[in-house]
Amino acid sequence: MPIQYYLFLSLALFCIGIMGALMRRNAIIIFMSIELMLNAVNLLLAAFSKMYNDSAAQIFVFFIMVVAAAEVAVGLAIIVMVYRKVHSVDVNILNRLKH
């Protein structure tokens, strides 16, 4: 199976993630789109790992998962705090932070 297939698949997932982050206003959905982008990258790394027969890429996937888990913990804590203050998860309301 040519590597291009995996490239296209992971690229499609990545672009869907970008679209989601741009289209939606719900902070949680934007966050989920970012997770989708990270997963697209993970998939491509695993494909390259198989192509070159090298385990290092799979270790990178492992590290990306670690970073994603840490990011989710902090990010969701921030979203919950914001919700407590303004009772919304709409990112358009959050632009008050700049004043």
Binding site: P2, Q4, L11, C15, I18, L22
Partner: peptide
Amino acid sequence: QLAGVVSGGTLFLVIIAAISKANLLGVI
């Protein structure tokens, strides 16, 4: 929303064009 779809789609097309120009011969 349209702007989001257009920008995402454009990125998709640009990178697809780049990949198909690049001479990738890898086979899994």
